[in-house]
Write a protein that binds this DNA or RNA. Structure first.
Length: 410
DNA sequence: TCTGGGGTCCTAGGACCC
DNA sequence: TCTGGGGTCCTAGGACCC
């Protein structure tokens, strides 16, 4: 323990992580401009080499080829990135048991218990990561998570930055308040109205003032930026997921039937994801997003757990009239399933709802298998047909079959 | 980043109950 | 009957993150 580091937190950030994983797998790509996202037609991840050539996130593949003809375009392989991610966590755990798996390409490590100099340990972690994984990492060391994040961001890629507590002011005077972890556009705007431009401006405000003008989260950030740790690491290996969501944007429209069918499709896809991971859900919320980016939503709690879209679609159809206005243009819908538990935990309820829903759920499992065999979503509910027609260029005729009790499949 | 998709957490305000 | 004050639970929506 020292003055400079009452706690010692390391933040590790994989540089251009998805692209770096691809390069680590395939040495022939090293040093070349690599872009991941072929399947979506836009750049999801960009190697630093490609970044230097002017490629940016979200850029269309067509435009990328124009400015960078020798670009290597790859599809994304999330399973591969997960493997590298787990290796990253494992390497961090060589140095401390307290590792927070923050995201696929980032983690925090609390090395406060280390006997060596903190900086030496942090450098070793970085060295091991780069040696073993064949890619670079940006690493920050400080006495709080937020400050460690500021540090790792300071130099990229392959940066190594240390912010001792007593030097926080020097670093923060050049950090725009909106770049701080947890301060988004809205808070950033509110702060600039109060004359706060940089992170230093912010921590120089007295505590009472911060509490009076901003919420709990900002109050915590105020401490964190001074190097006083209030955000403890969450070392739970893989805390289970709390929600599953499916959303999709489309060309602005007022077409009621189409919007409803988008919702049905999202519900189907969300349930397919539940079934894939052998999960069931009890709560549903869904929303419509207007052209002006405002949201109108609704939610409901079912009396039983299910992965059957029909159960959720019933609710959606029920609530839809409350939300939809014929005079508004909409650009997206979303379906969120909450209160998620593993399938096997499902209890039978008093009214035997489980039987009823299990019957059709098995049907969906058969559909899942058909889809696996014959390509994505061979079979789906007629309610989402309109949403699906948009996706296919080849209007091949669908065959409809009517299934008793819950309507038509196509 | 004139704006994609998948997540988490916080909070204002209504409903309901003393 | 009208009234005040306070607590809890829930929902809808906001804000942020990667």
């Amino acid at each position: 323990m020292s003055e400079a580091f009452p706690k010692a937190i390391v933040h590790i950030d994989g540089d251009a992580f998805f692209a770096s994983c691809e390069i680590a797998q395939n040495e022939k790509y090293r040093g070349k401009p690599v872009v991941v996202g072929k399947e979506k037609g836009i750049a999801i991840a960009i190697s630093y080499n490609a970044k230097d050539r002017g490629v940016s996130r979200g850029m269309l593949m067509g435009d990328i080829r124009k400015i960078c003809p020798d670009v290597i375009v790859l599809s994304s392989h999330y399973d591969l990135y997960k493997i590298y991610s787990r290796r990253m966590y494992a390497i961090a755990r060589r140095y401390s048991p307290v590792v927070e798996e923050y995201s696929v390409d980032e983690c925090f490590v609390d090395i406060s218990q280390s006997k060596e100099y903190f900086e030496t340990v942090a450098r070793k972690i970085k060295h091991d990561l780069e040696q073993d994984l064949g890619m670079t990492f940006s690493v920050g060391l400080a006495s709080s998570k937020t400050l460690a994040k500021v540090a790792s961001k300071t130099r990229k890629p392959a940066g190594f930055t240390v912010i001792p507590k007593d030097q926080a002011h020097d670093f923060l005077k050049d950090v725009p308040i909106g770049k701080v972890w947890g301060i988004g556009p809205s808070t950033s705007l509110a702060m600039s109205k109060q004359g706060i431009k940089t992170a230093l401006d912010y921590i120089l405000k007295p505590e009472w003032w911060v509490q009076e003008h901003f919420g709990k989260l900002c109050h915590e950030i105020w401490y964190e930026l001074q190097g006083i740790s209030v955000h403890t690491l969450n070392p739970e290996p893989d805390h289970e997921q709390k929600s599953v969501m499916k959303t999709r944007s489309f060309k602005p429209t007022t077409n009621r039937a189409y919007i409803l069918s988008e919702l049905v499709k999202n519900a189907e896809n969300a349930c397919a994801k539940l079934r894939k991971y052998k999960l069931v859900a009890k709560e549903l919320s869904f929303y419509l997003k207007t052209q002006q980016f405002s949201y109108k939503g609704s939610s409901a709690v079912l009396s039983f757990r299910t992965a059957n879209p029909v159960d959720f679609i019933r609710v959606i159809i029920d609530h839809f009239p409350k939300l939809y206005s014929a005079t508004r243009e909409y650009r997206a819908t979303g379906v969120i399933l909450r209160a998620i538990t593993p399938e096997w935990s499902r209890q039978h309820d008093l009214f035997g709802n489980i039987q009823e829903t299990e019957g059709t759920e098995n049907l969906f499992r058969i559909f899942d298998r058909l889809s696996k065999k014959h390509g994505r979503r061979t079979v789906f509910l007629a309610g989402s047909l309109q949403a699906r027609l948009r996706d296919t260029d080849d209007r091949e005729p669908y065959e409809r079959l009517t299934i008793p009790y819950w309507g038509e499949a196509v």
